[in-house]
Nucleic acid binder design. Structure first.
Length: 290
DNA sequence: ACCCAGGCGGGCG
DNA sequence: CGCCCGCATGGG
């Protein structure tokens, strides 16, 4: 049985989704000139075409996992209409039409965003891949062959040595990763809290060593699907101040209030479009609008 | 050679 | 509470 979810072009874009600095970005190298993209999902290899249709991966479970991962069943045009409050976001939507917010597993999201602190996207990808190769569980294709290695769980990493993680390129984040792995394999079951609301989840996440306000928001958004979360990194702070406050400095608290009031339950979607467009275009946009 | 990167925890006033 | 500092390390 093969997935036949019908998706119009422009409503789902595989490249923008996979490359927009979300967890999937860090799991492998993807060649978008190919017809299909393969990636690890819950220990299995899944192959999808450019419209997100499943090519490899049998059964209703895989189909449901893929739909959930890409938020396929949401009406992206409705989301666009609700976050299109201004020209900046409209420009981003035009440029990155079909970029979906992904809904990943809580732990893999935690791992990736602990690595993200004071780091760059390229190095996060490199380090994640090394951790997957060294510590990850095998990934099986639809015939049961081992075709790669997935994201290691907290159990695998909790017994790792600091120097071994550092040899994977984690840098000073190694101690945070081990501490988080121990905590999440003993004190905190990340799956257990998934039914809680955004605020409660964020509070729980911030108890993890190495997880602060920004990383907790990233995990809430991309690991738990809490679309009202609005992670504020250096880019978002700089961009929101420039685009919406005439270049005046604003505190994270003020920015959170602004985002909540402006985009409400979809603030996280707005954040992703501001972030990804702003990173590439902010210089030209700012100079044009000053 | 220098500078930066999807922040965080700890120490200080 | 707010502010400031150090932090591993590959790439520009």
């Amino acid at each position: 049985m093969r997935g036949r979810t019908q998706i119009e072009a422009g409503k789902f874009d595989i490249m923008h989704t996979f490359e927009s600095a979300q967890p999937l970005t860090f799991f492998g190298d993807y060649d978008y000139s190919r017809k299909e993209i393969k990636y690890p999902l819950m220990g299995r290899q899944v192959r999808v075409d450019r419209l997100g249709r499943i090519v490899e991966g049998k059964g209703a479970t895989v189909k449901a996992d893929v739909a959930r991962r890409f938020r396929i069943n949401e009406d992206i045009r409705e989301i666009y209409s609700r976050i299109s409050t201004d020209d900046f976001i409209r420009s981003s939507i035009k440029e990155y039409a079909g970029m979906r917010l992904t809904h990943n597993l809580p732990w893999e999201t935690t791992l990736v965003f602990i690595l993200s602190q004071f780091n760059n996207v390229k190095r996060i990808r490199m380090t994640t891949k090394k951790l997957m190769e060294r510590y990850g569980d095998p990934v099986l294709d639809s015939e049961g062959n081992v075709v790669g290695s997935g994201v290691p769980g907290p159990e695998e990493l909790s017994s790792a040595k600091v120097e071994d993680l550092m040899s994977c390129g984690t840098g000073f984040r190694a101690k945070y990763l081990i501490s988080a792995a121990k905590y999440c394999s003993s004190s905190l079951d990340l799956d257990r809290i998934s039914a809680n609301d955004y605020s409660a989840i964020k509070d729980e996440l911030m108890e993890i060593d190495g997880v602060g306000d920004k990383v907790a928001d990233c995990i809430a958004l991309m690991g738990y699907g809490k679309l009202e979360a609005f992670p504020i990194d250096t880019w978002i702070k700089r961009l929101v101040e420039a685009v919406y406050f005439g270049g005046k400095k604003r505190s994270p608290k003020q920015i959170h209030e602004f985002a909540s009031e402006r985009w409400g339950a979809l603030a996280g979607y707005a954040q992703q479009y501001i972030f990804w467009y702003g990173r590439s275009r902010w210089k030209t946009w700012i100079s044009k609008n000053r």
